[in-house]
Design a protein around this nucleic acid. Structure first.
Length: 562
RNA sequence: UGGGCUGUGGUGCAAUCGGUAGCACGUCUGACUCUGGAUCAGAAGGUUCCAAGUUCGAGUCUUGGCAGCCCAGCCA
């Protein structure tokens, strides 16, 4: 906790805040917020924003609110607000008593709108969607003013009140700010503040039939909450002048909006709309499918929140749009899991091995280290017997030069067990190997040879009679291409889905120490990777998700050969 | 001659007042090892978008180009 280290580099947002503090802006207060719309589940891109906002508050001794931007009841659901709260908390952030909803401010928004009308800065517009669009102009040409733009204040007041009372049908009219139809910034061309929408809101129920637009609500929300720094993504840069305009007209507190580039990761996508599509079409199994970049998906997959936070801090924050290599995320996950995950032996693709010179009924309890990275994790006993399972891929009849594992006549070590030598491979009629016969050297108990002879390979194994059966779900990239959103004409992003993103293995054999586990518990299956207990898992039916593989030098050698 | 923003190894970020372009991931070697993990040591990889200018000296300052992204929802 010492500050001895060279000063950590500040990102551009921290520099802005530092400057504001030096200038005693906002009495040097720092108050941020994370403002999700409850229209989907949070993903790793949101995690970046969450870490940023809560992290900034933490760094500067300030506060960070959790506020739901629930201004569009047609897309929002209570399920989403629950999941979002759960995800933010799981990531390790605490909004304390500052859980807010835009919908709680609807009355204030309304009053402010009335003020704008009274000041001649807003008007009720009867243009329909199509007419409004046509009059908006284009990027290079100015728009035309609405014929309703110069209604009397009293008429506007009356109409607006009747909008609220529900006298008009959906889409019949809007309340618009009166700014400048010729503005180069399209957002300033008399933007809509309210639309008529007879929809039931997940919190305010049927209290309202007009709902504020995001642009009208957002700046106000931040102002109401006394936010000092409104951190948001790049696409809102053009909206900042509008928020400032509203706040100036109303003479309200100005948060400073700062925009940064949202996270993009290769081999996946952050579009909520497309994620929703995958979920709704059953292409993945729900929002928490372990292949998804959602927070809940990553949680189910076994990614620790600390790893996600570390990742978010490593990617930095800037205004340049880029694509982060998913390998960095995986590196952070491995780094964390390597330090924490208890080691255990699990055989995914079992091949029976009989140790022919091992006594029939003998069961030896061998000592195994729980975590070589953490001596305090202690040791456990693992049963060893005459009949075992090893990984099918750990045996080759005709092994190539760099294959360090078992082959006819070869000797390897069974981890924490004995040196064994393969004497015979038994096959069925189809020529498939069904069983191996080996002999063991009793002098090598524990895994060391008293005569000092070395063995190149060490295999994981499991005693057949003691093993637990398990289903194991193997995951790979959801998409087979780096940028699944880049599609040629006539194709769909779903064409880029990786057909092998999920592989389900049954009949896997896990060592018996893993008998009393709960969903979420994580392990390293030695030499195989990191795995965690899935929420579908029961005492009768153990189910694991593969979080990640270990780095695999042998796999790399093989890949290069191809 | 619409507005806004952005250009630094393959990727993501640094570089204080203008002073030898660094870090991480990835890649490739090698060492070590009872996980082909971890760890350790090392290597490759840059026209800092381009051009001109200022300066003893420019990623940084000036001017002019070029490229990319965002904006024409009663979405957020």
């Amino acid at each position: 906790m010492t500050d001895e280290q060279p000063k950590l580099k500040l990102n551009f947002i921290q520099q802005i805040i530092d400057d504001d503090i030096s200038a005693n802006k906002n009495d040097s207060r720092v108050h941020t917020r994370f403002p999700p719309e409850p229209n989907g589940y949070l993903h790793i891109g949101h995690a970046k924003s969450i870490c940023l906002n809560f992290g900034l508050a933490d760094k500067y001794g300030g506060k960070c609110n959790l506020r739901f931007d629930d201004t569009n009841p047609s897309k929002e659901e209570i399920e989403y607000v629950q999941s979002i709260k759960e995800d933010v908390a799981w990531l390790g952030f605490d909004w304390e008593d500052r859980l807010f909803f835009a919908s709680d401010y609807f009355e204030q928004f309304y009053d402010h709108a009335v003020t704008l009308i009274k000041n001649g800065k807003a008007f009720v517009c009867d243009l329909n969607l199509e007419d409004m669009r046509q009059r908006r102009g284009t990027l290079t040409s100015p728009g035309q003013e609405s014929p309703f733009r110069n209604r009397e204040v009293s008429e506007n007041l009356d109409l607006f009140e009747r909008m609220r009372k529900g006298e008009f049908a959906d889409g019949f009219c809007t309340l618009r700010a009166k700014i400048d139809m010729a503005a180069a910034n399209m957002n300033m061309r008399d933007p809509v503040m309210y639309r008529v929408m007879h929809a039931t809101h997940h919190r305010s129920s049927d209290d309202w039939c007009i709902y504020p637009m995001y642009d009208w609500a957002h700046g106000l929300e931040d102002s109401i909450e006394g936010i000092t720094h409104s951190i948001c993504t790049l696409e809102f840069e053009d909206h900042r002048p509008l928020y400032d305009w509203f706040l100036d007209q109303l003479n309200l507190h100005h948060p400073q909006q700062v925009e940064f580039a949202r996270l993009d990761l290769n081999y996946t996508m952050m579009s909520k709309r497309k994620l929703l599509e995958l979920v709704q079409e059953g292409l993945v199994k729900g929002w928490d499918d372990p292949r998804l970049p959602t927070i809940s998906g990553m949680r189910r997959r076994g990614y620790p929140p600390t790893a996600i936070r570390e990742f978010c801090s490593r990617i930095g924050v800037a205004k340049v749009k880029g694509v982060v290599d998913i390998a960095l995320l995986q590196h952070c996950v491995r780094d964390e899991l390597n330090k924490k995950a208890p080691r255990v032996m699990g055989v995914l693709d079992p091949l029976k091995v009989v140790i022919t010179n091992f006594p029939e009924d003998l069961v030896e309890e061998l000592d195994a280290i729980n975590n070589p990275e953490d001596p305090s994790a202690g040791t456990r006993k693992v049963p060893f017997s005459r009949t075992l399972y090893i990984e099918r891929g750990d045996f080759m009849e005709d092994p190539p030069r760099k294959f360090f594992r078992l082959g006819p006549g070869r000797e390897v070590r069974l981890r924490y067990g004995y040196f064994v030598t393969c004497t015979e491979a038994i096959k069925n009629e189809a020529g498939e190997i069904t069983e191996l016969r080996c002999t063991y050297d009793p002098a090598t108990k524990g895994g060391d040879s008293p005569d000092g002879r070395k063995v190149k390979g060490t295999l994981h194994w499991v005693s057949a009679a003691h093993a637990l059966d398990a289903e194991v779900r193997l995951y790979d990239h959801l998409f087979s291409v780096e940028n699944p959103s880049a599609i040629s004409d006539g194709s769909d992003f779903k064409d880029n889905l990786n057909p092998d993103s999920l592989k389900v293995l049954t009949g896997c054999k896990i060592e018996p120490s893993v008998n009393d586990v709960r969903p979420g518990d994580g392990f390293q299956f030695e030499r195989n990777g990191y795995f965690c207990v899935d929420k579908d898992s029961t005492v009768e039916r153990l189910i694991f998700n593969r979080t990640l593989t270990l780095k695999d030098a042998w796999a790399k050698i093989q890949k290069k050969k191809k």
